[in-house]
Nucleic acid binder design. Structure first.
Lengths: 231, 231
DNA sequence: ATCTCTATGTATAACTT
DNA sequence: TAAGTTATACATAGAGA
């Protein structure tokens, strides 16, 4: 891959080379273009291919050079997907993104740590599960569950609680002990997860349609989440 | 914005200009760098700022020139978020991404899993879910959790516990109260579920490869899936 | 779609202010 | 910490295979 670059022999490093047939090649070379929709379909597609790979390359470089997490998705107008992520899973980055949004949406003043009314369980579990990631034992789950039961009072915190529980499950899955499970058992678990997932998805989509939030509410939400002076 | 480019007077279009003090400025100019982590923190940060804005600019250009949807997120290692999207909402793009994932087929094994989830068990769940719609209350969750905590003793019961937990979540999802939740929250839950699912899947596949149990385990699994008492 | 090739537009590394 | 400068490295438009 990298070797391909070595093939460059002529014009290396921008040095001009007089080929002798400058007349016939006079049209060649990069032209300046306006940043607006390329009308010609063919040209547009060629440009898309080139720039897409360029963009992904840049994204990768940024993540490597600066040790940052980068997630990138591109949808063509015909629905084809191109993606890149610096880690193993774009989904992880998306999760992180949404957690980030949630954190910001809770209160305009993020530095104010007194958010008792929001979700005590949330913060509590968050901390503990983060601390427990590397010293895993089965007891961890019980602990988390116990505190959950105690703190689980109002309906408003249900989702948050369940979400955090899921995090706990996830770190549980990563533990060595989990590997001892039978393949069949794992598949059973997978099946349950997928079932739950399907339910939530259909409900969510239903809710979005009901609320007509595709065009309106989501935008409002994003306005809230987005600060104008972002970069 | 665009006007800034007009400021260039010297070295415009790459033409060399002898400033007279070439001696003192001999060190200037871009150097080639390796694509690997920049060790110097300060330098890394400067590079990050430059390249981040460059990347976002490229992303914007791609979306405009080629009429494609682009979503980009960058997390610094200290948790700061930078984002870009071609439309008005990154969440829309993320949702589109998730819908895309749902529709696409993965590895052969995963195809099997997906087929399976479309049939018998799914129907079973469907029925149960419908029956549970009107008798839900928050207390139920606590109950389930409580018994979970009690039963959760040895590593061997982890799977059972997790399974029960998922059941709890699932019935919770069916309750009317759940619909009050924010769409964003639901998506977060979805993402967490998917993350957990991915982890389990990869572990399971790994285990299957290790044990060379491709053939016989799948049969066992199919038996299991066809059992009505799965949940 | 992907590669080549030229010529040039742009991004950006190292420095300076 | 951010903005500006210089000189160069890299990306890519246009044309063709």
């Amino acid at each position: 891959m990298e070797n391909k670059k070595e093939k460059r022999r002529v014009g290396e490093r921008g040095i001009r080379v007089d080929c002798g047939d400058t007349q016939t090649r006079g049209e060649m070379g990069r032209k300046k273009i306006e940043v607006k929709l390329i009308e010609d379909r063919c040209n547009r597609h060629v440009t898309f291919c080139k720039r897409r790979s360029g963009l992904i390359k840049k994204a990768r470089e940024l993540s490597v050079l600066c040790d940052v997490e980068v997630g990138l998705v591109v949808f063509t107008n015909r629905g084809r997907l191109y993606e890149f992520c610096s880690g193993n899973s774009l989904l992880n980055i998306i999760m992180r993104y949404q957690r980030h949004l949630q954190g910001r949406s809770e209160s305009p003043i993020d530095n104010d740590l007194q958010e008792r009314s929001q979700s005590p369980i949330d913060n509590d579990l968050q901390e503990r599960s983060e601390n427990l990631i590397d010293n895993g034992s089965g007891a961890k789950v019980s602990e988390d569950l116990q505190s959950l039961v105690k703190n689980h009072e109002s309906d408003e915190t249900i989702l948050v609680s369940l979400g955090k529980l899921l995090q706990t499950i996830q770190s549980q899955v990563e533990e060595p002990n989990f590997k001892k499970l039978d393949v069949t058992q794992m598949m059973q678990l997978e099946n349950q997860l997928e079932g739950t997932l399907d339910k939530i998805k259909s409900q969510r989509i239903e809710a979005m349609i009901e609320n007509e939030c595709w065009t309106y509410s989501m935008d409002m939400a994003m306005d809230m989440f987005n600060s104008p002076s972002f970069y």
